[in-house]
Design a binder for these strands. Structure first.
Length: 259
DNA sequence: ATGGCCTGCAACGCAGGA
């Protein structure tokens, strides 16, 4: 059974709903993880998405954060947040779709390495790691999709020297990302043999998209059983060129799930 | 030359993003 998995930080679902609906129609994904919906659950555009044929689950809050999972098939065993880690910020949502355990994550940004937000980011990643260790053991078919706010390697950054050891690239963040891979998860970018630099985010300023000054910070991690059957990884740069776009582009990968 | 943009909230400027 082939499943097309996707992740997209939409930077306000209220503003981006028309883009999302258009993109769903043309890209034909089966499962989509959204981040930064920035909507309270009561304001979630459930009817629009249901009408378009999607099963939907969401964990939102007003103004900040907010995640959602859309799927062509029903969502089962939905879990909000990281169990045992109290957090008012809505950054994690999990559900099972067609036998695949899907985890949608919006990793904290960190703001700057000397900030409380950075300390929160590292603490949050520690909690994610501990929880995913259990989830990997429970679910051989596990996919962790989202905005990780970490560029794993220098080639994932348009100007590594300019970023230095700041947020998104600091050794502690990269170590945390590498730690997730030790749990038996693989970055689908690597698993599908990508060699060329591919960015998923471009600053709104400085004509960054036109000049391709970006970062690869949105990732799809897969357990071995899924990574072995993954193909066609790509960043869909289309929506980034539409009028009033999100600053992130969707990342897509196909998995031919063993029966 | 280190900011330049976008979003939401609330109120005409700020926090936050990355």
């Amino acid at each position: 059974m082939n499943l097309r998995l996707a992740t997209w930080n939409v930077n306000s679902l209220k503003v981006r709903l028309p883009h999302l609906l258009d993109w769903l129609e043309q890209a034909e994904p089966d499962v989509v993880c959204l981040q930064e919906t920035k909507l309270d659950d009561l304001a979630f555009p459930l009817a629009d998405l249901t009408q378009a044929g999607w099963h939907v689950s969401f964990a939102g809050q007003k103004t900040y954060n907010g995640v959602a999972i859309l799927a062509r098939q029903p969502l089962e065993h939905v879990v909000r947040g990281i169990p045992g880690y109290d957090d008012v910020q809505q950054r994690v949502l999990s559900a099972t779709v067609a036998g695949v355990r899907v985890v949608c994550v919006y990793v904290p940004n960190g703001q700057s390495v000397d900030s409380d937000k950075y300390r929160y980011k590292l603490e949050w990643l520690t909690a994610l790691h501990a929880w995913l260790a259990q989830e990997v053991a429970l679910h051989p078919h596990l996919a962790v999709l989202g905005d990780y706010n970490i560029a794993p390697r220098d080639q994932d950054v348009y100007d590594p020297a300019a970023f230095g050891e700041g947020i998104l690239v600091s050794p502690a963040e990269r170590s945390a990302f590498a730690g997730l891979l030790t749990l038996g998860l693989r970055d689908s970018y690597d698993a599908t043999g990508q060699a060329d630099a591919a960015f998923t985010w471009w600053d709104y300023r400085m004509a960054s998209f036109r000049r391709n000054l970006g970062l690869r910070i949105d990732h799809i991690l897969l357990t071995r059983a899924l990574a072995d059957v993954a193909s066609a990884w790509h960043v869909d740069r289309g929506p980034r060129q539409w009028e009033r776009p999100s600053d992130h582009a969707p990342v897509v990968v196909d998995v031919d799930v063993p029966a």
